[in-house]
Every structure is written in structure tokens, then in C-alpha cells.
């Protein structure tokens, strides 16, 4: 659905996005993750041709996306970038009518979009008087009304309460089930972890990881924790070959595969150290994410 090649954006002499090769498969929910300032919004704006790339190419639905071609593609792309749009001096209904006129939409498309985001009861209110969650939902309705093939959402859960976040999450799943490809950004993995089928993790404008969540797990091996009768000596011994340190009374070894783990056990047995337990640390996706982003000196 989206393919970029060596996509980059430089402001002044600072590379904000650098050498990005995005692969967003058709029909997936693509979770676009990265800490604040990592370049998520800039990337999404380039995908929509709101910002002109300094380098690289973008192909969406097989067609090049540039300023000169954006018009043909934008009719099929719904988007919500940074803060929600809408005119505060108009009511929700008037804002929807504006989108309808601009995109030549049917009444039914508009009604359907409004129903999807559950905003039907608030259409007569001026948007100025909306809560942030309502504005966010109106923005979504505006993006959805054109029945897009691709939906690009930049932190749609920003500023929402847990119930609002859950609601957006359900909505995205529903939209994706109806066949729309969704690309959604966040700086919190937990927010999109359960909805996203493919993840892209950005750090300092570079892609740190791209793939499924299983692949993300597989990439980093959890630490091995060893409980022994002589933790100090065990730590010192293993440190000769492995990254090892004392974690309370437990020896924590990083980056060990199964074979290396067996090696460590036999070494300790050989050294007459009693082993009380050997186990893998439990690791959440959040830890993996943190590891990945911290590792690169963020």
C-alpha cells in the first residue's frame, strides 16, 4: 500500500527523517512508533505530500506520490495529522457538510461516518464547545466519510482518557476489518500494541525496526537469571565471557541463547556453585521497545 525508498527530510542541516524504507502492506494496521521528536509526523506529512521530501521516493497504491500527483491519490486517503481539524465557529454538522461539498460525498457516506465515530447526538453543537475527544472523533469522521482505502492517523489518541483510547482502538479494528489499510502513530507502544498487526519503530528519524510483533520479540532475547549459592563468585566467573551483573542476589546475564545458557550452567556446576534456579526474565513488548530506542542513544 505504501512503499518508500530512502525517504528523507532535512530542516536546515538537521536530518529529521533519514533513509526511511517504509513497507505498509495492504489491509494491515501499521503501528508507527517512536519517541517525541523522532519524525513520525514529518514522515506522515511527507506521505500526504504536505511536506516535500528532501530525498527519496514515495509510492502509494502503486503510484508515485508527489506534489504533482497528490490530487489523484488524496481522494482515497483519509488523514488526521497532529491536532484535529474543524472550524470552531461552525457546528459539527456544518463541518461535515463542508467536507461533503469538497469531496462530493453522498448523504449516506456522511451519516455512516458520523455513526461510526458515535457523534450523532453532538452535531448541532459548535465545534468550539466540543471536548478534545469529540473533536478527535469529528476529525476521524471527516477522514472516514470519503471511505478511504488508506487511513493515516497521527496520534489519534493524544489527550484522550482511557475510555476514549479504547474506543479509538475498537474503531480502528473495525475500519481495518472493512478493508481499509490503517497507518497510526503513537509514542506509546501500549496504545497500539493490540491493534497493530505490523510495527514500524522510529528513532531519531531512522527506522529501528519494521515487522510483526512476534518478529520484534524474537529480535531481542530476554536476560537469563541465575540463582546460586554464591552469586558474587558466579557473577565474576561468568563476566569473563558474557555480559553479566548482580541484580540483588540474582546473576543477570544478557544476550544468551540456549546453548550459551547451557554453557553457563555447566561452568557453574564445574566450579562447585550450587544452582537453585535458571530462568528467562519475563519481558513485555514495552521493554523491547525501550531497549530498542535506548540502545541507539536516544
Amino acid at each position: 500500500m505504501i512503499i518508500t525508498h530512502d525517504l528523507g527530510k532535512t530542516y536546515g542541516n538537521r536530518a529529521v527523517v533519514d533513509g526511511l524504507d517504509l513497507r505498509v502492506p495492504e489491509g494491515c494496521v501499521y503501528g508507527f512508533l517512536g519517541p517525541n521528536g523522532s519524525g513520525k509526523s514529518t514522515t506522515m506529512k511527507m506521505l500526504l505530500s504536505l511536506v516535500r521530501p528532501t530525498s527519496g521516493e514515495i509510492h502509494i497504491m502503486g503510484r508515485p506520490m508527489r506534489r504533482s500527483t497528490r490530487r489523484e491519490l488524496l481522494g482515497h486517503i483519509g488523514s488526521l495529522i497532529e491536532s484535529p481539524p474543524a472550524y470552531g465557529h461552525l457546528t459539527g454538522r456544518e463541518n461535515m457538510r463542508l467536507v461533503q461539498r469538497l469531496l462530493d460525498l453522498t448523504d449516506n457516506q456522511v451519516t455512516q461516518a458520523v455513526r461510526t465515530v458515535r457523534l450523532r447526538d453532538h452535531l448541532e453543537k459548535k465545534v468550539r464547545d466540543y471536548s478534545l475527544g469529540m473533536k478527535q472523533r469529528l476529525g476521524l469522521a471527516m477522514a472516514l466519510a470519503r471511505e478511504p482505502r488508506l487511513l493515516i492517523l497521527d496520534e489519534p489518541t493524544n489527550g484522550l482518557d482511557p475510555a476514549g483510547i479504547e474506543e479509538i482502538r475498537r474503531l480502528l479494528t473495525k475500519v481495518a476489518d472493512d478493508g481499509t489499510t490503517v497507518m497510526v502513530s503513537s509514542h506509546l507502544l501500549g496504545e497500539i500494541d493490540r491493534t497493530a498487526t505490523v510495527l514500524g519503530i522510529l528513532g531519531n528519524g531512522r527506522m529501528l525496526f519494521q515487522g510483526t510483533r512476534d518478529e520484534l520479540f524474537a529480535r531481542s532475547v530476554p536476560d537469563v537469571l541465575v540463582d546460586t549459592s554464591e552469586p558474587q563468585r558466579a557473577a565474576a566467573l561468568t563476566a569473563r565471557w558474557h555480559t553479566s551483573r548482580l541484580d540483588g542476589a540474582t546473576v543477570r546475564l544478557s544476550g544468551l541463547d540456549d546453548k550459551a545458557t547451557a554453557g553457563v550452567v555447566s561452568l557453574l556446576v564445574h566450579e562447585d556453585i550450587e544452582i537453585h534456579g535458571v530462568r528467562r526474565d519475563s519481558q513485555s513488548l514495552e521493554d523491547v521497545f525501550m531497549d530498542l530506542t535506548e540502545e541507539r542513544g536516544l
Binding site: 497528490r70 490530487r71 488524496l74 495529522i81 474543524a86 469538497l102
Partner: peptide
């Protein structure tokens, strides 16, 4: 003025309009 508020610029230019 209304276009400079919130995400309106993004929405304005995110439409299939030249």
C-alpha cells in the same frame, strides 16, 4: 485565520484539490 487553527492546514491541503 480559521485555517491557521488546529489541524486545519493539514486538512485543507490533504484534500484532492490543487
Amino acid at each position: 485565520r480559521v485555517e491557521h487553527r488546529g489541524g486545519n492546514w493539514n486538512a485543507l491541503m490533504g484534500r484532492p484539490v490543487s
